[in-house]
Amino acid sequence: MSATRRITYREAVREALREALLRDPRVFLMGEDVGRYGGSYACSSGLLAEFGEERIRDTPLSESGFVGAGIGAAIGGMRPIVEVMTVNFSLLALDQIVNNAATVRHMSGGQIAVPVVIRMATGAGRQLAAQHSHSLECWYAHVPGIRAVAPATVADARGMLWTALQEPNPVVIFEHATLYNDEGEVPGEGELAVDIDRAAVRRAGDDLSLITYGGSLKKALAAADALAGERIGCEVIDLRTLRPLDEETILASVRRTHRALIVDEGWRSGSLAGEIAARIAEEAFFDLDAPVRRVCSAEVPIPYPRHLEEAATPQVDGIVAAARGLVRR
Protein backbone atom coordinates (compact mmCIF):
# COMPACT_ATOMS: atom_id res chain seq x y z
CA MET A 1 0.00 0.00 0.00
CA SER A 2 1.28 3.44 -0.85
CA ALA A 3 1.79 6.03 1.87
CA THR A 4 -1.18 8.13 2.85
CA ARG A 5 -1.37 11.92 2.68
CA ARG A 6 -2.88 14.39 5.14
CA ILE A 7 -5.11 17.03 3.62
CA THR A 8 -8.09 19.06 4.74
CA TYR A 9 -11.67 18.16 4.01
CA ARG A 10 -11.89 21.27 1.83
CA GLU A 11 -8.84 20.18 -0.16
CA ALA A 12 -10.33 16.73 -0.49
CA VAL A 13 -13.51 18.17 -2.00
CA ARG A 14 -11.46 20.34 -4.34
CA GLU A 15 -9.28 17.42 -5.44
CA ALA A 16 -12.35 15.31 -6.03
CA LEU A 17 -13.96 18.03 -8.14
CA ARG A 18 -10.78 18.50 -10.13
CA GLU A 19 -10.35 14.82 -10.73
CA ALA A 20 -13.94 14.47 -11.91
CA LEU A 21 -13.49 17.39 -14.32
CA LEU A 22 -10.30 15.84 -15.67
CA ARG A 23 -11.64 12.34 -16.02
CA ASP A 24 -15.04 12.96 -17.54
CA PRO A 25 -15.65 15.65 -20.16
CA ARG A 26 -19.36 15.52 -19.38
CA VAL A 27 -18.74 16.79 -15.87
CA PHE A 28 -19.23 20.47 -15.09
CA LEU A 29 -19.63 22.37 -11.83
CA MET A 30 -22.33 24.98 -11.37
CA GLY A 31 -23.53 27.05 -8.46
CA GLU A 32 -23.44 30.44 -6.77
CA ASP A 33 -19.94 31.86 -6.55
CA VAL A 34 -18.22 28.60 -7.48
CA GLY A 35 -16.03 30.39 -10.04
CA ARG A 36 -14.67 33.88 -9.41
CA TYR A 37 -15.18 33.65 -5.68
CA GLY A 38 -13.90 30.08 -5.47
CA GLY A 39 -16.93 28.69 -3.65
CA SER A 40 -18.53 30.01 -0.49
CA TYR A 41 -16.52 27.43 1.43
CA ALA A 42 -13.55 27.80 -0.95
CA CYS A 43 -13.95 24.26 -2.25
CA SER A 44 -13.56 25.25 -5.89
CA SER A 45 -10.83 27.87 -5.69
CA GLY A 46 -8.53 27.69 -8.69
CA LEU A 47 -10.89 25.58 -10.78
CA LEU A 48 -12.19 28.46 -12.91
CA ALA A 49 -8.64 29.30 -14.01
CA GLU A 50 -7.98 25.69 -14.91
CA PHE A 51 -11.24 24.67 -16.54
CA GLY A 52 -12.84 27.89 -17.77
CA GLU A 53 -16.30 29.37 -17.54
CA GLU A 54 -18.10 26.69 -19.53
CA ARG A 55 -17.29 24.04 -16.99
CA ILE A 56 -17.08 26.14 -13.84
CA ARG A 57 -20.33 28.05 -14.11
CA ASP A 58 -21.16 30.88 -11.74
CA THR A 59 -24.92 31.08 -11.45
CA PRO A 60 -27.19 33.93 -10.40
CA LEU A 61 -29.07 33.56 -7.11
CA SER A 62 -31.64 31.23 -8.66
CA GLU A 63 -31.59 27.98 -6.73
CA SER A 64 -34.72 26.55 -8.26
CA GLY A 65 -33.56 27.52 -11.73
CA PHE A 66 -30.00 26.23 -11.69
CA VAL A 67 -30.67 23.07 -9.69
CA GLY A 68 -33.49 22.30 -12.09
CA ALA A 69 -31.17 23.07 -14.99
CA GLY A 70 -28.65 20.63 -13.54
CA ILE A 71 -31.35 17.98 -13.48
CA GLY A 72 -32.24 18.79 -17.08
CA ALA A 73 -28.61 18.74 -18.19
CA ALA A 74 -28.18 15.33 -16.56
CA ILE A 75 -31.16 14.05 -18.50
CA GLY A 76 -29.62 15.65 -21.57
CA GLY A 77 -26.42 13.65 -21.34
CA MET A 78 -24.13 15.67 -19.09
CA ARG A 79 -22.81 14.88 -15.61
CA PRO A 80 -23.48 18.09 -13.68
CA ILE A 81 -22.22 18.70 -10.18
CA VAL A 82 -24.48 21.36 -8.72
CA GLU A 83 -23.38 23.18 -5.59
CA VAL A 84 -25.97 24.78 -3.34
CA MET A 85 -24.45 26.93 -0.62
CA THR A 86 -26.34 25.39 2.29
CA VAL A 87 -29.21 23.02 2.89
CA ASN A 88 -31.31 25.95 4.11
CA PHE A 89 -31.05 27.60 0.69
CA SER A 90 -31.70 24.27 -1.05
CA LEU A 91 -35.29 24.61 0.10
CA LEU A 92 -35.75 27.05 -2.77
CA ALA A 93 -34.85 24.13 -5.07
CA LEU A 94 -36.78 21.46 -3.21
CA ASP A 95 -39.46 21.40 -5.87
CA GLN A 96 -37.00 20.55 -8.62
CA ILE A 97 -35.26 17.90 -6.56
CA VAL A 98 -38.33 16.20 -5.15
CA ASN A 99 -40.83 16.71 -7.96
CA ASN A 100 -38.45 16.29 -10.89
CA ALA A 101 -35.17 14.58 -10.06
CA ALA A 102 -36.73 11.98 -7.80
CA THR A 103 -39.74 11.17 -9.94
CA VAL A 104 -39.09 11.34 -13.67
CA ARG A 105 -37.55 7.91 -13.88
CA HIS A 106 -40.61 6.33 -12.34
CA MET A 107 -43.21 8.56 -13.98
CA SER A 108 -41.74 7.83 -17.39
CA GLY A 109 -41.85 4.10 -16.86
CA GLY A 110 -38.10 3.85 -16.51
CA GLN A 111 -37.17 5.77 -19.67
CA ILE A 112 -35.19 8.52 -18.01
CA ALA A 113 -32.11 8.48 -15.82
CA VAL A 114 -31.07 11.54 -13.83
CA PRO A 115 -27.34 11.28 -13.09
CA VAL A 116 -27.00 14.60 -11.29
CA VAL A 117 -24.91 15.21 -8.21
CA ILE A 118 -26.04 17.99 -5.88
CA ARG A 119 -23.63 19.08 -3.14
CA MET A 120 -24.52 21.27 -0.22
CA ALA A 121 -23.21 22.29 3.17
CA THR A 122 -25.31 21.51 6.20
CA GLY A 123 -25.42 21.85 9.95
CA ALA A 124 -24.78 24.15 12.88
CA GLY A 125 -21.77 25.10 14.94
CA ARG A 126 -20.73 28.44 13.48
CA GLN A 127 -23.22 30.77 15.16
CA LEU A 128 -25.04 31.51 11.94
CA ALA A 129 -28.53 31.38 13.49
CA ALA A 130 -31.73 29.86 12.23
CA GLN A 131 -31.57 30.45 8.49
CA HIS A 132 -28.10 28.99 7.96
CA SER A 133 -27.67 26.17 10.46
CA HIS A 134 -30.22 23.47 10.03
CA SER A 135 -29.68 19.78 9.35
CA LEU A 136 -32.39 18.84 6.90
CA GLU A 137 -30.68 15.79 5.37
CA CYS A 138 -33.54 13.69 6.61
CA TRP A 139 -35.99 15.52 4.34
CA TYR A 140 -34.06 14.30 1.32
CA ALA A 141 -33.47 10.86 2.81
CA HIS A 142 -37.26 10.55 3.01
CA VAL A 143 -37.68 10.60 -0.75
CA PRO A 144 -37.57 7.47 -2.94
CA GLY A 145 -35.57 8.07 -6.10
CA ILE A 146 -32.86 10.06 -4.35
CA ARG A 147 -29.63 8.83 -2.86
CA ALA A 148 -28.37 10.87 0.06
CA VAL A 149 -24.79 10.60 1.30
CA ALA A 150 -22.85 12.38 4.04
CA PRO A 151 -19.05 12.14 3.88
CA ALA A 152 -17.87 12.48 7.48
CA THR A 153 -14.18 11.89 6.87
CA VAL A 154 -11.60 13.47 4.60
CA ALA A 155 -11.17 10.20 2.72
CA ASP A 156 -14.90 10.03 2.07
CA ALA A 157 -14.97 13.65 0.97
CA ARG A 158 -12.21 12.72 -1.47
CA GLY A 159 -13.78 9.50 -2.68
CA MET A 160 -17.55 9.78 -2.60
CA LEU A 161 -17.92 12.32 -5.39
CA TRP A 162 -16.53 10.05 -8.06
CA THR A 163 -18.66 7.15 -6.91
CA ALA A 164 -21.68 9.44 -6.88
CA LEU A 165 -20.94 10.50 -10.46
CA GLN A 166 -21.08 6.86 -11.56
CA GLU A 167 -24.64 6.61 -10.23
CA PRO A 168 -27.41 6.77 -12.79
CA ASN A 169 -29.58 8.37 -10.08
CA PRO A 170 -29.67 11.77 -8.38
CA VAL A 171 -27.26 11.89 -5.47
CA VAL A 172 -27.36 14.59 -2.83
CA ILE A 173 -24.09 15.03 -0.93
CA PHE A 174 -24.20 16.72 2.48
CA GLU A 175 -20.99 18.29 3.73
CA HIS A 176 -21.16 19.43 7.34
CA ALA A 177 -19.92 23.01 7.45
CA THR A 178 -17.74 22.42 10.51
CA LEU A 179 -15.69 19.78 8.66
CA TYR A 180 -14.02 21.84 5.94
CA ASN A 181 -10.97 22.79 7.99
CA ASP A 182 -10.46 19.35 9.50
CA GLU A 183 -7.47 17.31 8.41
CA GLY A 184 -7.41 13.61 7.70
CA GLU A 185 -5.71 10.85 5.77
CA VAL A 186 -6.35 9.94 2.16
CA PRO A 187 -4.69 7.22 0.12
CA GLY A 188 -1.48 8.43 -1.53
CA GLU A 189 -2.35 7.22 -5.00
CA GLY A 190 -4.45 4.76 -6.93
CA GLU A 191 -8.21 4.45 -6.88
CA LEU A 192 -9.63 6.97 -4.47
CA ALA A 193 -13.30 6.29 -5.10
CA VAL A 194 -15.11 4.73 -2.18
CA ASP A 195 -18.13 2.56 -1.71
CA ILE A 196 -21.28 4.56 -1.06
CA ASP A 197 -23.47 1.58 -0.36
CA ARG A 198 -22.15 0.60 3.04
CA ALA A 199 -21.89 2.18 6.45
CA ALA A 200 -18.43 2.09 8.03
CA VAL A 201 -17.43 0.88 11.45
CA ARG A 202 -15.09 3.69 12.56
CA ARG A 203 -14.25 2.14 15.89
CA ALA A 204 -14.90 -1.35 17.24
CA GLY A 205 -16.42 -1.98 20.65
CA ASP A 206 -18.58 -4.46 22.50
CA ASP A 207 -20.80 -2.58 24.91
CA LEU A 208 -22.74 -0.16 22.82
CA SER A 209 -23.38 0.78 19.18
CA LEU A 210 -22.99 4.52 18.62
CA ILE A 211 -24.66 5.20 15.29
CA THR A 212 -24.14 8.56 13.63
CA TYR A 213 -23.16 10.39 10.44
CA GLY A 214 -21.70 13.61 9.05
CA GLY A 215 -20.64 16.35 11.45
CA SER A 216 -21.60 14.28 14.49
CA LEU A 217 -19.06 11.54 13.78
CA LYS A 218 -16.16 13.37 15.39
CA LYS A 219 -18.29 14.07 18.45
CA ALA A 220 -19.26 10.40 18.67
CA LEU A 221 -15.62 9.36 18.37
CA ALA A 222 -14.60 11.83 21.09
CA ALA A 223 -17.36 10.45 23.30
CA ALA A 224 -16.18 6.90 22.59
CA ASP A 225 -12.67 7.94 23.68
CA ALA A 226 -13.99 9.34 26.92
CA LEU A 227 -16.13 6.26 27.53
CA ALA A 228 -13.19 3.95 26.88
CA GLY A 229 -11.62 5.49 29.99
CA GLU A 230 -14.62 4.24 31.91
CA ARG A 231 -14.32 0.80 30.35
CA ILE A 232 -17.34 1.28 28.15
CA GLY A 233 -16.51 0.03 24.67
CA CYS A 234 -18.38 1.84 21.89
CA GLU A 235 -18.70 0.59 18.37
CA VAL A 236 -18.97 3.74 16.29
CA ILE A 237 -20.89 3.38 13.04
CA ASP A 238 -20.73 6.09 10.40
CA LEU A 239 -23.82 5.71 8.23
CA ARG A 240 -22.20 7.42 5.21
CA THR A 241 -25.28 6.78 3.11
CA LEU A 242 -28.51 8.17 4.53
CA ARG A 243 -30.66 6.66 1.82
CA PRO A 244 -30.73 3.76 1.32
CA LEU A 245 -29.71 2.90 4.88
CA ASP A 246 -27.24 0.07 5.35
CA GLU A 247 -29.49 -1.85 7.71
CA GLU A 248 -27.23 -4.88 7.67
CA THR A 249 -24.24 -3.14 9.26
CA ILE A 250 -26.42 -1.41 11.83
CA LEU A 251 -28.23 -4.57 12.84
CA ALA A 252 -25.11 -6.73 12.94
CA SER A 253 -23.52 -4.29 15.36
CA VAL A 254 -26.58 -3.94 17.58
CA ARG A 255 -26.98 -7.72 17.74
CA ARG A 256 -23.47 -7.92 19.16
CA THR A 257 -23.50 -4.94 21.54
CA HIS A 258 -27.19 -5.22 22.52
CA ARG A 259 -27.41 -1.45 22.97
CA ALA A 260 -27.89 1.38 20.52
CA LEU A 261 -27.39 5.12 20.85
CA ILE A 262 -28.07 7.25 17.78
CA VAL A 263 -26.55 10.71 17.40
CA ASP A 264 -28.20 12.95 14.83
CA GLU A 265 -28.01 16.73 14.44
CA GLY A 266 -31.50 16.77 12.96
CA TRP A 267 -34.44 17.55 15.23
CA ARG A 268 -35.63 14.50 17.13
CA SER A 269 -39.20 14.48 15.80
CA GLY A 270 -39.36 12.83 12.42
CA SER A 271 -35.58 12.38 12.37
CA LEU A 272 -33.32 9.91 10.65
CA ALA A 273 -32.50 8.79 14.20
CA GLY A 274 -36.16 7.93 14.59
CA GLU A 275 -36.08 5.82 11.42
CA ILE A 276 -33.00 3.94 12.58
CA ALA A 277 -34.52 3.35 16.00
CA ALA A 278 -37.64 1.98 14.37
CA ARG A 279 -35.66 -0.42 12.20
CA ILE A 280 -33.71 -1.67 15.20
CA ALA A 281 -36.96 -2.15 17.09
CA GLU A 282 -38.48 -4.00 14.14
CA GLU A 283 -35.55 -6.27 13.40
CA ALA A 284 -33.47 -6.62 16.56
CA PHE A 285 -35.86 -6.02 19.42
CA PHE A 286 -35.08 -9.29 21.19
CA ASP A 287 -31.34 -8.65 20.94
CA LEU A 288 -31.60 -5.43 22.92
CA ASP A 289 -30.65 -5.18 26.60
CA ALA A 290 -31.91 -1.62 26.85
CA PRO A 291 -34.23 0.72 24.99
CA VAL A 292 -32.73 2.50 22.00
CA ARG A 293 -31.65 6.06 22.88
CA ARG A 294 -31.16 9.16 20.79
CA VAL A 295 -29.16 12.35 21.09
CA CYS A 296 -30.65 14.83 18.62
CA SER A 297 -31.04 18.58 18.27
CA ALA A 298 -33.49 20.29 20.58
CA GLU A 299 -36.79 21.22 18.96
CA VAL A 300 -35.94 24.83 18.34
CA PRO A 301 -34.68 26.82 15.34
CA ILE A 302 -30.92 27.03 15.92
CA PRO A 303 -30.26 30.14 18.04
CA TYR A 304 -27.36 32.54 17.47
CA PRO A 305 -25.58 32.75 20.85
CA ARG A 306 -22.88 30.16 21.34
CA HIS A 307 -24.19 28.76 24.63
CA LEU A 308 -27.67 28.25 23.20
CA GLU A 309 -26.43 26.85 19.91
CA GLU A 310 -24.35 24.32 21.82
CA ALA A 311 -27.24 23.48 24.09
CA ALA A 312 -29.47 22.97 21.05
CA THR A 313 -27.19 20.54 19.20
CA PRO A 314 -25.55 17.21 20.14
CA GLN A 315 -22.35 17.63 22.16
CA VAL A 316 -19.77 15.18 23.45
CA ASP A 317 -20.89 15.52 27.08
CA GLY A 318 -24.46 14.72 26.21
CA ILE A 319 -23.43 11.69 24.17
CA VAL A 320 -21.25 10.41 27.02
CA ALA A 321 -24.05 10.90 29.54
CA ALA A 322 -26.58 9.13 27.35
CA ALA A 323 -24.18 6.24 26.76
CA ARG A 324 -23.52 5.85 30.48
CA GLY A 325 -27.22 5.83 31.15
CA LEU A 326 -27.66 3.06 28.61
CA VAL A 327 -24.90 0.83 29.86
CA ARG A 328 -25.33 1.30 33.61
CA ARG A 329 -29.00 0.73 33.96
Binding site: L92, A129, A130, Q131, Y304, P305, R306, L308
Partner: peptide
Protein backbone atom coordinates in the same frame (compact mmCIF):
# COMPACT_ATOMS: atom_id res chain seq x y z
CA UNK B 1 -26.12 37.44 21.53
CA UNK B 2 -27.37 38.95 24.77
CA UNK B 3 -30.85 38.66 26.27
CA UNK B 4 -31.27 42.45 26.04
CA UNK B 5 -30.84 42.39 22.27
CA UNK B 6 -33.69 43.51 20.03
CA UNK B 7 -34.31 39.83 19.13
CA UNK B 8 -33.40 38.57 22.63
CA UNK B 9 -30.03 37.54 21.21
CA UNK B 10 -31.59 34.73 19.21
CA UNK B 11 -30.98 36.25 15.81
CA UNK B 12 -27.67 38.09 15.88
CA UNK B 13 -26.44 40.50 13.24
CA UNK B 14 -28.53 39.05 10.42
CA UNK B 15 -31.84 38.96 12.27
CA UNK B 16 -32.62 42.30 13.89
CA UNK B 17 -36.32 42.63 14.71
CA UNK B 18 -38.39 45.24 16.53
CA UNK B 19 -42.08 44.92 15.94
CA UNK B 20 -42.82 47.94 18.17
CA UNK B 21 -41.12 49.92 15.41
CA UNK B 22 -42.61 47.75 12.69
CA UNK B 23 -39.16 46.49 11.77
CA UNK B 24 -39.76 42.97 10.48
CA UNK B 25 -36.17 41.77 10.13
CA UNK B 26 -33.36 40.87 9.24
CA UNK B 27 -34.01 38.11 6.58
CA UNK B 28 -30.97 36.06 5.54
CA UNK B 29 -32.55 34.12 2.72
Amino acid sequence: GKATGCSRGRGGSMHLFDVSRRFYGGNAI
